[in-house]
């Protein structure tokens, strides 16, 4: 299986005033196409930072990141924006729907950046909402939906452009057990049925258990013997 995401010796250092805060200390990792990877680790270990780098909303201090053969770590701000629009689907802990737009309009947001006309966009939105099981909630506003439903709308928004990779940061962190289960069911289905590559950050072992692989981050490094791209390329390429 080919590697979709390649991360080579990535470091990330934040500067706050004159302090330098090293967050990622040389991460090397490969994510195969079609994988469902869980990133685990204690709070503050750098999970979100790593996910943001993969998703192209942040850039590493050093090291290279390639997604689908494209070196996104070298892209300019604008190039990254259009790359994200085409290749990345985002799922957040707090769903992050736009409260003044209804479900269909929220899902349509990424499509507004494409060349699709109104009719085509409508078709895509309906498909995406049907996949997450909310075809009957098109005109509902976020405040009229439950947390689980909001997260499913957010997932529809993430998949509506058929992106190369889905990134999810604690997607069940704000949900009760039942809704968390349903969300994970959906992610698993997207991975199995639609062959979506998913990278999910979580600190919940139960959630991580639904992924195909799990990686542990601690203090900015991957735990020993874990799914390292260079350390155990065999795992990566299976």
């Amino acid at each position: 299986m080919e590697t979709l995401v390649e991360i080579h010796d990535v470091r990330k250092v934040y500067k706050r005033d004159q302090f330098e805060i090293p967050v990622l200390n040389g991460i090397t990792l490969g994510v195969p196409r079609g994988d469902f990877l869980a990133l685990m680790g204690p709070s503050g270990s750098g999970k979100t930072t790593l996910l943001n780098l993969i998703a192209g909303i942040d850039r590493p201090t050093s090291g290279r990141i390639l997604v689908d053969g494209q070196e996104v770590s070298s892209y300019s701000e604008t190039a990254l924006a259009s790359w994200r629009a085409r290749h990345v689907g985002f799922i957040f802990q707090m769903y992050n729907l736009i409260p003044v737009l209804n479900a269909a309009e929220n899902v349509e947001l990424p499509l507004l950046l494409t060349k699709l006309n109104r009719k085509q966009r409508k078709q895509h939105v309906e498909n995406a909402l049907a996949i997450v099981g909310l075809a009957d909630r098109m005109t509902h506003y976020p405040r009229q939906l439950s947390g689980g439903q909001e997260q499913r709308v957010a997932i529809a928004r993430a998949i509506v452009t058929d992106p190369t990779i889905l990134v999810a940061d604690e997607p069940t962190g704000d949900l009760d057990a039942k809704n968390a289960d349903e969300t994970l069911d959906l992610l698993q289905r997207l991975n199995a049925e639609f062959e979506k590559t998913i990278v999910m950050v979580t600190h919940d072992p139960k959630a991580a258990g639904r992924a195909k692989h799990a990686l542990h981050l601690d203090k900015g490094v991957l735990a020993e013997g874990q799914y390292g791209y260079e350390a155990e390329p065999a795992v990566v390429r299976t």
């Binding site: 909303i57 629009a85 990345v88 992050n96 736009i98 947001l109 950046l113």
Partner: peptide
């Protein structure tokens, strides 16, 4: 969020 989705 909009910017993450690719809004310049």
């Amino acid at each position: 969020v909009l910017k993450a989705l690719g809004y310049r």
